[in-house]
Design a protein around this nucleic acid. Structure first.
Length: 754
RNA sequence: GGACGAUUAGCUCAGCGGUAGAGUACUGCACUCACAUUGCAGGGGUCGCAGGUUCAAAUCCUGCAUCGUCCACCA
């Protein structure tokens, strides 16, 4: 054995051997004679990484955890499937790509939609290759023969079927509602994608006919269609229902005064202007009072032709100009400059979101959420850590209809068609707007003839699906399309392991859609890991410059060291911190492990040269399928050639401790306590086995005590087996060094039976 | 405005009813005989604050403080 473990060569070599050997593909349950009870399949659907960016440390986190589980169950003999994939990540990818275009001085509007789609597709394909190579580097033992992409035609077909079904069942509808629109990204977002930011703004008290009212958005005044007060507000009672005359920037106009319960008399002066087209609350008020809805801001974030000389100004610019003009006219009474409130910004680009009216497709969640809550309440789906159960249920309770249409090109086109003869199609600020009540045909193919007017020209809905609408179907969509019978064999899956911050965005939707489409839960257990932080506990982000590149770390210290460092010292669901020193420490552990192997190998060589035979102490490499039953039925101590009475107290002690370790590690893995399992192994291997037992054994080895060596080999090999899920490469390499003639690699060895 | 989490050794975190733990950092000694990516030895904490329950509390309860996360349509 080399003096130093060379992880670069070893990792590449073994990954190729494993993959070529077909070890990642699920094998039928053991028990050739058909006597052995069939073991339950163990399945994880990999959260598909976005196909637009190389992997970051968070990906390395889920790879580590999932690979530990997968390797463990595979060694236990369960038919084990880990299905990999990648996500087209609509908005994310389009954003990244448009930024790239911007650098080249271009925009998406320089392309036709088809060209754009094709260009992004090629870009994504290139990235996918990088991404899958990186997953391999980290040791992910997933089944590449079943790799799926969210835009694979068979996946898209299933996404469409679900959409048709939802539409037929009345769970999907098209409607005009106030949505969060990002003028820079040019698309609407769901509520979850709108980030709340608290900031200080000016609150303007402006004169408005006989009233003074407070607003932070004077620039929207051109869209006002009423003035509202609280019905019980004595100050304004006499005005309710009356028309008032208001002096404005574009002359005098009249405005109706209405009363609505939502108006807080304590806010400002107790009077508000109602701007239904640009404020969600005002929109609701307008619906109750049948007010006119007048849009004055376009989808490009600029004021439109209804605003006279202000047309073309951005919201920000317009606010300044409008305020200064109002001041000139003496219409501003006072300005509170320290008004603190929260606004919604685009989670992607940080731009202030404009509440806008645009017809959108929605999933009605009322009926979908009921069973999705039930299964969690009843424990059919267990969420780990437990505290997220409450969060999940709470969120579900308050869940509102889900906007699933996005005004972007990169994604799955919505299969809906409108007859151009009986529909008035408008282009507003780069957005194609189709009226909310337009007759729609929901199907994949372009319809031939309009049932209403007989027209033959149709336009497809210009929008694409929210990425989460397709990834929300991932567990069943993948299994229905990967290999024949996969769905029957592996659905519902065992564990959904993912980051805690997408519990709502993704997990909740998978549960709702999974139950709706298949009648079954998509997975039994949800295991949520928290975010990886840097060594100071800071959130990792590009802007902070504290990025830890997992691939760089794996190249420097080895994937094994990185993997162990990632799960080291964290409670389930607790935040993980990651510093280079930690990886270094784990690399050192690997070095220790390697040197124990060298020590044993050297002694084996020495004994063999002397012609001393080493008794076999039931080594795990010989646990073939045939010997499995033997192992299951009898104690390993009795199944070997060692006379138990010869064991020294130290031997008995180490074997007892080893037994405890086997039980401990097994229990911890099954309880998702990976850090505990790893710590037990670390402690035993280094401080119990190496520091104490081996040191004591040296005396006996010098006396050519072959039985001592056989116990060393046995304990060590067992450790390698137990450690394999955590550090697959180095354990596999040492294992081979100790058994050069054994064809059966450690990845296919049998987990110690307990 | 709600909900949840955190507060333990210089740093990052485990422990969650029974004599304070890990990694890392630090100090001293030790390199022919597996490993200096090492070994041996050691220093370092009234476990955020204040009450309470208990024979016994980092650990359970109550309140407070600070930090963080999520949720919520308030102009």
């Amino acid at each position: 054995m080399d003096k130093v473990y060379k992880h670069q060569d070893v990792e590449k070599k073994w990954y190729t051997l494993w993959e070529k050997g077909g070890y990642f593909t699920p094998r039928p349950p053991a028990g050739g004679s058909g006597q052995a009870p069939k073991k339950k399949p163990f399945t994880i659907i990999m959260p598909p990484p976005n196909a637009n960016d190389p992997l970051h440390i968070g990906h390395a986190m889920f790879v580590t955890i999932e690979d530990i589980l997968i390797r463990y169950y595979r060694m236990k003999g369960n038919p084990t499937l880990w299905l990999p994939g990648s996500d087209h990540a609509g908005i994310e990818t389009q954003y990244v790509f448009e930024k790239k275009l911007q650098k080249e001085g271009k925009s998406r509007f320089d392309f036709t939609r088809e060209e754009f789609y094709k260009t992004v597709y090629n870009y994504v394909m290139e990235n996918t290759d990088i991404m899958t190579a990186q997953l391999r580097k980290l040791g992910a033992s997933c089944d590449w023969t079943r790799f799926k992409f969210t835009l694979d035609s068979d996946i898209v077909k299933i996404v469409y079927e679900t959409f048709y079904q939802l539409y037929r069942d009345g769970h999907v509808y098209r409607s005009e509602r106030m949505i969060n629109f990002c003028p820079r990204c040019g698309t609407a977002f769901s509520d979850l994608e709108a980030k709340d930011v608290v900031q200080k703004d000016s609150l303007y008290y402006m004169k408005y006919g006989p009233f003074t009212l407070a607003t932070v958005r004077p620039e929207t005044k051109f869209g006002d269609t009423a003035v509202a007060v609280n019905p019980s507000d004595k100050r304004y009672k006499k005005w309710i229902g009356k028309e008032v005359e208001v002096e404005g920037l574009m002359g005098k106009f009249t405005m109706r005064v209405i009363a609505d319960e939502v108006i807080d008399p304590k806010f400002g002066t107790g009077v508000i202007k109602v701007t239904p087209a640009h404020d969600p609350d005002d929109f609701e008020i307008a619906k109750r009072h049948n007010l006119e809805i007048r849009r004055v801001i376009d989808f490009n974030g600029r004021l439109n032709e209804k605003t006279g000389k202000y047309q073309g100004l951005t919201v920000k610019e317009a606010r300044k100009v409008v305020v200064s003009d109002l001041e000139k006219k003496g219409l501003i009474e006072k300005i509170d400059e320290n008004y603190e409130h929260s606004i919604k910004v685009c989670y992607r680009c940080g731009m202030t979101l404009e509440p806008m009216l645009l017809p959108q497709w929605f999933v009605k969640v009322d009926e979908l959420k009921k069973p999705a809550m039930e299964v969690v309440k009843k424990g059919d789906i267990e969420i780990i850590p437990k505290r997220f159960t409450k969060q999940y249920l709470n969120w579900m309770t308050n869940l509102r209809d889900w906007n699933i249409s996005r005004q972007i090109w990169w994604g799955i086109a919505i299969p809906a068609w409108y007859c151009t003869d009986c529909t008035k199609i408008e282009k507003i600020g780069g957005i194609t707007s189709i009226p909310k009540d337009a007759p729609v045909v929901v199907q994949e193919e372009k319809p031939k003839k309009c049932h209403k007017c007989g027209g033959t020209d149709f336009i497809q809905d210009p929008d694409t699906f929210d990425t989460w609408f397709s990834s929300g179907q991932w567990p069943y969509a993948t299994l229905m399309t990967a290999k024949p019978n996969d769905f029957d064999s592996f659905y519902p899956t065992s564990v959904m392991e993912t980051a805690a911050d997408i519990l709502y965005l993704w997990v909740a939707r998978m549960i709702m859609l999974g139950i709706y489409k298949t009648g079954k839960i998509p997975f039994h257990t949800v295991y949520l890991h928290a975010i990886v932080r840097d060594k100071h506990g800071q959130k990792i982000s590009k802007s902070k410059g504290n990025i830890i590149d997992p691939i760089e770390m794996a190249e420097k210290y080895g994937a094994d060291a990185l993997r162990l460092a990632l799960i080291w010292g964290i409670a389930p669901g607790g935040d993980s911190y990651m510093g280079e020193e930690k990886i270094l420490g784990m690399r050192n552990f690997g070095n220790k492990l390697w040197n124990i192997g060298r020590f044993i190998r050297m002694n084996m060589d020495f004994f063999e040269k002397q012609g001393i035979s080493i008794p076999s102490y039931s080594s795990s490499d010989e646990r073939s399928e045939e010997s499995r039953s033997l192992l299951q039925s009898s104690s390993r101590l009795r199944s070997n050639n060692i006379d138990r009475s010869n064991l020294s107290p130290e031997d008995k002690k180490i074997l007892t401790q080893l037994g405890m370790l086997e039980r401990g590690v097994t229990k911890e893995i099954e309880n998702f306590q990976f850090a505990k399992a790893a710590e037990r192994l670390y402690e035993f291997i280094w401080h119990t086995f190496a520091d104490k037992y081996i040191e004591e054994a040296k005396v006996e080895l010098r006396k050519n005590n072959a039985e001592k060596l056989s116990i060393l080999i046995y304990v060590y090999k067992t450790c390698l087996t137990l450690l394999h899920p955590f550090m697959p490469f180095i354990t596999e390499e040492i294992f081979r060094e100790l058994n050069p003639n054994n064809k059966n690699p450690l990845i296919a060895s049998v987990w110690p039976n307990i």
